[in-house]
Design a protein around this nucleic acid. Sequence first.
DNA 1: CATCTAAGTAAAGTATACTTTACGTTAAGT
DNA 2: ACTTAACGTAAAGTATACTTTACTTAGATG
Lengths: 69, 69
Amino acid sequence: MKTLIKEKRTEMNITQEELSKKLKVSRQTVISLEKGKYKPSLVLAHKLAQTFGCTIEELFIFEGDENIE
Amino acid sequence: MKTLIKEKRTEMNITQEELSKKLKVSRQTVISLEKGKYKPSLVLAHKLAQTFGCTIEELFIFEGDENIE
DNA sequence: CATCTAAGTAAAGTATACTTTACGTTAAGT
DNA sequence: ACTTAACGTAAAGTATACTTTACTTAGATG
Protein backbone atom coordinates (compact mmCIF):
# COMPACT_ATOMS: atom_id res chain seq x y z
CA MET A 1 0.00 0.00 0.00
CA LYS A 2 1.28 3.41 -0.93
CA THR A 3 0.12 6.73 0.39
CA LEU A 4 0.10 10.27 -0.92
CA ILE A 5 -0.04 11.86 2.52
CA LYS A 6 3.28 13.66 2.23
CA GLU A 7 2.48 14.93 -1.27
CA LYS A 8 -0.95 16.21 -0.25
CA ARG A 9 0.43 17.81 2.89
CA THR A 10 3.17 19.70 1.08
CA GLU A 11 0.71 20.78 -1.63
CA MET A 12 -1.35 22.20 1.21
CA ASN A 13 1.72 23.93 2.65
CA ILE A 14 1.35 22.74 6.20
CA THR A 15 3.91 21.15 8.51
CA GLN A 16 3.72 17.69 10.02
CA GLU A 17 2.95 19.30 13.35
CA GLU A 18 0.06 21.31 11.96
CA LEU A 19 -1.35 18.22 10.32
CA SER A 20 -1.01 16.23 13.52
CA LYS A 21 -3.00 18.90 15.37
CA LYS A 22 -5.76 18.88 12.79
CA LEU A 23 -5.98 15.11 13.10
CA LYS A 24 -5.53 15.09 16.87
CA VAL A 25 -2.76 12.55 16.71
CA SER A 26 0.88 12.82 17.68
CA ARG A 27 3.51 14.20 15.33
CA GLN A 28 5.19 10.81 15.42
CA THR A 29 2.10 9.24 13.99
CA VAL A 30 2.19 11.62 11.02
CA ILE A 31 5.88 10.93 10.46
CA SER A 32 5.37 7.19 10.65
CA LEU A 33 2.43 7.26 8.25
CA GLU A 34 4.32 9.37 5.72
CA LYS A 35 7.33 7.09 5.99
CA GLY A 36 5.15 4.03 5.57
CA LYS A 37 6.13 2.54 8.91
CA TYR A 38 2.56 1.49 9.45
CA LYS A 39 -0.90 1.83 8.04
CA PRO A 40 -3.49 4.19 9.52
CA SER A 41 -6.69 2.97 11.11
CA LEU A 42 -9.83 3.35 9.05
CA VAL A 43 -10.97 6.36 11.05
CA LEU A 44 -7.62 8.08 10.75
CA ALA A 45 -7.54 7.37 7.02
CA HIS A 46 -10.95 8.98 6.75
CA LYS A 47 -9.84 12.06 8.69
CA LEU A 48 -6.79 12.37 6.47
CA ALA A 49 -8.90 12.13 3.33
CA GLN A 50 -11.31 14.74 4.68
CA THR A 51 -8.46 17.05 5.58
CA PHE A 52 -7.13 16.82 2.04
CA GLY A 53 -10.54 16.97 0.41
CA CYS A 54 -10.26 13.62 -1.30
CA THR A 55 -11.46 10.06 -0.85
CA ILE A 56 -9.65 7.32 1.00
CA GLU A 57 -9.15 5.51 -2.30
CA GLU A 58 -7.45 8.59 -3.75
CA LEU A 59 -5.14 8.99 -0.79
CA PHE A 60 -4.05 5.37 -0.50
CA ILE A 61 -3.04 3.13 -3.34
CA PHE A 62 -3.80 -0.50 -2.67
CA GLU A 63 -1.74 -3.03 -4.54
CA GLY A 64 -2.69 -6.65 -5.31
CA ASP A 65 -3.53 -8.84 -2.34
CA GLU A 66 -1.95 -7.28 0.68
CA ASN A 67 -1.65 -8.71 4.11
CA ILE A 68 -4.28 -7.66 6.56
CA GLU A 69 -1.91 -6.38 9.16
CA MET B 1 -18.95 4.72 12.74
CA LYS B 2 -21.61 2.55 11.17
CA THR B 3 -21.14 -0.13 8.59
CA LEU B 4 -23.31 -1.66 5.90
CA ILE B 5 -21.35 -4.91 5.77
CA LYS B 6 -24.24 -7.09 6.85
CA GLU B 7 -26.67 -5.41 4.47
CA LYS B 8 -24.30 -5.72 1.51
CA ARG B 9 -23.51 -9.32 2.35
CA THR B 10 -27.13 -10.39 2.56
CA GLU B 11 -27.93 -8.50 -0.67
CA MET B 12 -25.17 -10.58 -2.21
CA ASN B 13 -26.65 -13.75 -0.75
CA ILE B 14 -23.49 -15.12 0.78
CA THR B 15 -22.88 -16.43 4.28
CA GLN B 16 -20.46 -15.02 6.81
CA GLU B 17 -18.23 -17.99 6.22
CA GLU B 18 -18.13 -17.45 2.46
CA LEU B 19 -17.33 -13.81 2.99
CA SER B 20 -14.57 -14.65 5.45
CA LYS B 21 -12.99 -16.94 2.86
CA LYS B 22 -13.10 -14.28 0.16
CA LEU B 23 -11.42 -11.87 2.54
CA LYS B 24 -9.01 -14.45 3.95
CA VAL B 25 -9.93 -13.62 7.52
CA SER B 26 -11.57 -15.71 10.18
CA ARG B 27 -15.33 -16.04 10.48
CA GLN B 28 -15.09 -14.40 13.88
CA THR B 29 -13.64 -11.32 12.28
CA VAL B 30 -16.65 -11.03 9.96
CA ILE B 31 -19.07 -11.52 12.84
CA SER B 32 -17.28 -8.93 14.96
CA LEU B 33 -17.20 -6.40 12.14
CA GLU B 34 -20.90 -6.83 11.38
CA LYS B 35 -21.74 -6.55 15.05
CA GLY B 36 -19.60 -3.42 15.39
CA LYS B 37 -17.32 -4.95 17.99
CA TYR B 38 -14.37 -3.32 16.33
CA LYS B 39 -13.37 -1.43 13.25
CA PRO B 40 -11.57 -3.05 10.33
CA SER B 41 -8.06 -2.14 9.31
CA LEU B 42 -7.73 0.06 6.24
CA VAL B 43 -6.67 -2.86 4.08
CA LEU B 44 -9.55 -5.02 5.23
CA ALA B 45 -11.98 -2.14 4.68
CA HIS B 46 -10.66 -1.86 1.14
CA LYS B 47 -11.07 -5.58 0.51
CA LEU B 48 -14.61 -5.43 1.81
CA ALA B 49 -15.44 -2.49 -0.43
CA GLN B 50 -13.95 -4.26 -3.43
CA THR B 51 -15.87 -7.43 -2.65
CA PHE B 52 -19.10 -5.45 -2.58
CA GLY B 53 -18.22 -3.28 -5.55
CA CYS B 54 -18.42 -0.02 -3.67
CA THR B 55 -16.10 2.51 -2.10
CA ILE B 56 -14.93 2.53 1.49
CA GLU B 57 -16.93 5.70 2.05
CA GLU B 58 -20.08 3.97 0.85
CA LEU B 59 -19.55 0.95 3.08
CA PHE B 60 -18.71 2.84 6.26
CA ILE B 61 -20.56 5.82 7.61
CA PHE B 62 -18.34 8.12 9.60
CA GLU B 63 -20.05 10.27 12.16
CA GLY B 64 -18.76 13.56 13.62
CA ASP B 65 -15.35 13.42 15.29
CA GLU B 66 -14.74 9.86 16.27
CA ASN B 67 -11.96 8.55 18.39
CA ILE B 68 -9.00 7.18 16.51
CA GLU B 69 -9.08 3.80 18.14
C1' DC C 1 28.72 30.74 15.59
C1' DA C 2 24.20 30.44 17.90
C1' DT C 3 19.50 29.60 17.39
C1' DC C 4 15.15 28.29 15.62
C1' DT C 5 12.13 25.35 12.79
C1' DA C 6 10.89 21.24 10.47
C1' DA C 7 11.86 16.63 9.83
C1' DG C 8 13.72 12.37 11.52
C1' DT C 9 15.05 8.12 14.64
C1' DA C 10 14.51 5.03 18.62
C1' DA C 11 12.46 2.70 22.40
C1' DA C 12 9.03 1.47 25.74
C1' DG C 13 4.19 1.34 26.79
C1' DT C 14 -0.97 1.05 25.81
C1' DA C 15 -5.00 0.07 22.95
C1' DT C 16 -7.18 -2.41 19.56
C1' DA C 17 -7.50 -5.53 15.33
C1' DC C 18 -7.44 -10.15 14.29
C1' DT C 19 -6.84 -15.35 15.17
C1' DT C 20 -7.95 -19.65 17.15
C1' DT C 21 -10.61 -22.81 19.71
C1' DA C 22 -14.61 -24.21 21.79
C1' DC C 23 -19.28 -23.99 22.93
C1' DG C 24 -24.43 -22.22 22.54
C1' DT C 25 -28.74 -21.05 19.78
C1' DT C 26 -32.18 -21.09 16.32
C1' DA C 27 -34.51 -22.48 12.17
C1' DA C 28 -35.14 -25.83 8.45
C1' DG C 29 -35.03 -30.64 6.61
C1' DT C 30 -35.36 -35.56 6.96
C1' DA D 1 -36.37 -36.38 17.61
C1' DC D 2 -32.03 -35.73 15.17
C1' DT D 3 -29.06 -33.35 12.15
C1' DT D 4 -27.15 -29.66 9.68
C1' DA D 5 -26.37 -24.81 8.44
C1' DA D 6 -25.82 -20.25 9.80
C1' DC D 7 -25.27 -17.14 13.35
C1' DG D 8 -23.62 -15.95 17.79
C1' DT D 9 -20.67 -15.58 22.36
C1' DA D 10 -16.43 -15.87 25.14
C1' DA D 11 -11.64 -16.02 26.27
C1' DA D 12 -6.75 -16.10 25.57
C1' DG D 13 -3.01 -14.97 22.54
C1' DT D 14 -0.45 -12.31 18.79
C1' DA D 15 0.34 -8.39 15.75
C1' DT D 16 0.11 -3.76 14.88
C1' DA D 17 -1.58 1.17 15.47
C1' DC D 18 -0.68 4.93 18.18
C1' DT D 19 1.42 7.66 22.24
C1' DT D 20 5.02 9.69 24.80
C1' DT D 21 9.56 11.14 25.67
C1' DA D 22 14.00 12.14 24.38
C1' DC D 23 17.55 12.78 21.24
C1' DT D 24 19.44 14.00 16.32
C1' DT D 25 20.08 16.45 11.91
C1' DA D 26 19.76 19.85 8.26
C1' DG D 27 18.54 24.36 6.65
C1' DA D 28 17.59 29.12 7.35
C1' DT D 29 18.47 33.40 9.84
C1' DG D 30 20.39 36.86 13.17
